[in-house]
Design a binder for these strands. Sequence first.
DNA 1: ATAGGGTGTCATGTA
DNA 2: ATTACATGACACCCT
Length: 545
Amino acid sequence: MMEIELPKTQQSQQDMELIDILWRQDIDLGAEREVFDYSHRQKEHELRRQRELEEEERQQRLREQEKALLAQLQLDEETGEFVPRPLPTAQPGPVAAQTAVFAEDGGDTLSFDECMQLLEETFPLVETIEQCLSMNMDEMLETSAYPTSNISPSVQESDYPFYTPKLTDVVASPAEAGPPPAYQDTFEGSFAAIAPPENLSQMTLKASDVNAAFNVDSFCDMFYPDLTNANAKKPSALAADGNESGPLAEVQDEPANPMEIPEFALSEGFEDKKAEVMAEFPDSDSGLSLDASPSGCSPQKSAFGDGSFGYSDSDMEEMDSNPGSMQSEYAEMFPSSFGADGFQGDSSIAAQPSPSQEPNVKHTKTESVDGVGHSKPPFAKDKQKRRAESRLSRDEQRAKALQIPFTVDLIINLPVDDFNEMMSKHQLNEAQLALVRDIRRRGKNKVAAQNCRKRKMESIAGLESELDSLREEKERLQREKAENDSSLRRAKQQLSSLYQEVFGMLRDEEGRPYSPSEYSLQQSSDGNVFLVPRIKKTSAKSSSK
DNA sequence: ATAGGGTGTCATGTA
DNA sequence: ATTACATGACACCCT
């Protein structure tokens, strides 16, 4: 996909919307959101640098802890190095497998759980790392015969001999159980954010390097290539790299293999899966393929780049699939990375996650949880589950993600004047402004829709009750009509009998009764009754009684 | 697997 | 022109 560079550094809302529309259109062609986002990429650099500075501090701490851990490592009595273990091919099994993954190069070795422990002590985000790993493992496990119970919680409990074999198992069938394509995307993206692709390919896994680029995604990256390496049955040449960095580097040296990620991404049978996954990425209520956008897919995109730009309304849809858990997860995952983004929002939310990170993390989680890379990823199920769990307040999640310094309620319910005043008091960037506007629009529209539906229901109910009353009235009128009909019938009968009685009493001059066939009684308008001959109507002879 | 209800959102029209 | 509101249509989720 070609990149479209927008010359303007500051895009207007319309531009953003246009971009949004264009991107939506291009999504069918596989275009990604940031492709259109010039400022997004621009800011990536700044944030990356900032992050690296932050990481240096941890780096320092980590080095100290490495030293401490080194003392605990098993030392090879002959070489003075930390013990390299036998290659897995010789002794298949849990222990051998473990060795295969982490100690192939025979260099300084840090066992997996030691690494985990070290990392845990160093980074509060180990939980995330575990998730990352366990998700991997889950995927692997599904392709292997190993039990699949609760791996992630045990990662740091050093029962990895139980679960590392899965790695090697996977190795046995790389085509089936390689790292999920989506992972690949995510990691590529985040990795690229930390170090340019060329750096990635030449990374030499010194602890300092590692730490400089340390974050959840990169951590995941570190472990995935392990698998990749193992897949290729290509022992790392790190030992020859003159790796003096110590144990931690051991864990990472395999990922450092320049070819791993690209190779993996292109490995046979994998590309197809990747395509599948990408096709599934679109994940939003609106059906827009927003998951495919920022940072997740393109190696050239920064995971932490733009804190806001290009991240307006529709972008935020990405988070919709995982809104509920998002914030808390972020808080856990990036306890220290956040808040350093220099956001101008309230300091009260300074610890909020950087928005650009979210899609990445979400991708990571979604992809892994959904079992990307399997022939039948349980994507939809998990997605729905997550959505159900996180249905609560999506706009709130979005607002937090962009560090909007107002509550959603305020944004929605404030009168126009107050709202404008409030907005003028805070300096918000375009994405934030766009989001606030969208939140307000959506919020009001949501209420309007609720009212509309309420009115509709009330209208339906009113019409139904009206229908009922009309039915009742109809029945009443029918009953009334029936009564009237019967009374009319009675009156007619009475009139008829009275007529006959009166007619029968009439006599002519000779005392004979009148024949009913020849005469009839008729009543005039003044009430007088006349005997009218039927045959000679014109020469009617009136007689009064 | 499917239907139906509930809900959020968007597009559009109206005041 | 802008804003708020109303409503049809659609997609998604859940039961």
